[in-house]
Design a protein around this nucleic acid. Sequence first.
DNA 1: ACATGTTCCCTTTTT
DNA 2: GGGAACATGT
Length: 755
Amino acid sequence: MQTPMSLNPAQQAAVDHRGGPLLVLAGAGTGKTRVITHRVAALLDEGVPPWRILAVTFTNKAAKEMRERIDVLCEGRHETKELWVGTFHSICARILRRNPEGVGLSSHYAIYDTSDQRSLMKQVLADLGVPDRLYTPKGVLGHIDRAKNQGLRPSEMDALQILEPVATVVRNAYTRYQDKLKAADACDFGDLILHVVTLLRNAVKPSDSQLGDLDPMVRMTTRFTHVVVDEFQDTNPVQAEFVDRISRNAELCVVGDDDQSIYGWRGADVDQILRFADRHDGAEVVRLEQNYRSTMNILECSDAVIRKNAGRLGKKLWSDLGQGDPVQLVRLGDERDEGRLIAQDIYAAIENGTDPEEIAVFYRTHAMSRVLEDEVRRMGLSCRIVGGVAFYERQEVKDTLAYLSVLRNSSSDAHVSRIINRPARGIGNTTQTRLADAAAKDGKSLWEALLDPEAAGLKKAAARKVRAFVTMMQNLRDEMHELPLDELLARVVEVSGYREMLVSDDSEEAQARLENLQELQGNVMEFLQERPDGTLDEYLELVSLVGGERSEGDATRAINLMTVHSAKGLEFERVYVTGMEERVFPHARVLDDPVQMEEERRLAYVALTRAKRHLTLTMAARRRIYGQTQVGTPSRFLGDLPRECIHRVGDEPAYGGHGGGYGRRSAHRPQPTRKQAESWQNDIEYDVDPDIPFDDIPTDEPEGVPIYVGMLVRTRTFGDAEVIGWSGSGTKMKLQLRLSNREVKTVLASFVEPL
DNA sequence: ACATGTTCCCTTTTT
DNA sequence: GGGAACATGT
């Protein structure tokens, strides 16, 4: 282990480099964050004012950690509070707050989350009269998101090369969506960056002009003299443009690892790193290859997986932490067994003194978390789900925040309609629809329509209820200015009847919701403690940006459950990677796309390299997906692992390779031996079936014909085809086929016969 | 208006 | 298996 203060020569070189752009190409566990923190500390020691330094991280959690580490290194010598440290989104929100009018927003603008976006888009599509089966809000928003990630506005969307007629629909929807956002005095996540980039684009003025010096955005482009960006491989084009513009006057240092680029679907561009030298004249490159995190067995396995990718810069990590334990590879009967085995193994490890916080379980998709959580809890262990349904996503929390948001700024229809009938106050669907129609007709906001319920054609009873709601909100708004934030929150929960609703419901769920509101209260108080003069605007902004991250403060030491994506940047003594099966990891959706498959491989690399000492990979022979049991074949990534670095439990897996099947080949495999299974955890009774050879796994297949990816079949309607995936079982089993013309079709298994 | 029943689609991954 | 969107009954 490297001590916190020491640096190796390569790290030192990256810290000391001055005078031009620098790219630090650093593998997993080589001390990237350490280089950044030391660099910032060194700059401060050299006399650079803290407010001239900007550090961009990937998550809010990372930002927080970085701040703490810098504080430790500076030992109170500098005003580190004035440093700008944050995610792209939090930094941009901070910049946008200086000039929201520049993009047509008020200073109370709301930040829309995914569900707000969808409800807005649903309206847009209805307005456009677009067939709703063809264009879902989610799908159209996906295109718009992509455009925003590239820094494109509706008129520039040709660059995305979407085919007609989709392109036209998306372009119109995009235009209208932005109009509606502006009317609601809101922006979405993508806008946060693009708005700021727009402001910065317009801020290019002659430097000697008087006017230019006064423009806050012009000052912004020259403010920073030193900019560092972590996780640069996950930067998308708008973010890269932001970096370029914000560092016009600055020395730029970016840190990244092309092998850990796992956000391609969000517009991140692996080439970003490769092109860095082209974009920035005289860029130096420093490589870090000594790993301080993992033992050699773990590194060898990780390397074996990532080595298969083409088009990487290529580096070979080494470590002097010794060979370590072999990587465990366990095959179990189904996902319950998988969870149970992991829970038992963790239990034993904790008994032996491992800190629960140093243990993590990874899964590919959120859907897999439930079973794992179940089994871990059943073992009496406390665990924390990182990400997942975040605190701020909970309905009661969102509702309460929506109340606050409307008090501040009533033009946001999405927030008004969220709270108008929660708790139920007799303003039902019909009334709401009438009000919305009336608002749309007059081009008013929903709130404005509420002010004059008769004009919307409401009957007396309905109008009275609407009035009562409006009066209540107006009273709250009067109180708002006199009350501190925490008391305001309590008033809202009380006056709105929300508390009453939960108290009178004595279900366990309502109880939990009440507790969540209590936690929210605590959260607000914490916020006020940190920033005594913090405003409602600032609080709401913080909350929408922190979004995915759980609230800190649960002091219990718990083991960590998370998706592989959430695991990036973290490290643990003991790591379990679950679902190492084809169609789970790698995910079924990437199987026929080589580009996405490479990203999947990088994702696997990220997963494996999180482990310091103990790494266990598990797979299940059967797994329930969509409530149907599916039969799994071992992940192709398992087949890449060097034999001498792993220890298998259960019988020898049928290694994937390309289109690796189960069934036929399994006949040649040696039979499993009890001994292997027992040697691993002989003091623990676990209820697994390591002896089930894959052939004997019960399936509901009609004639027991083994189906495997790559299998050739004959269909009556489409001719011969290759199986690239399947779902369901028994008579409901469906096959995904690639036809001879490379088209992909899904057909019922009973319509095909093996070739 | 609301409570209860029914169907359908779904699942990558997140700031 | 489960949540959301629709449908039907009181």
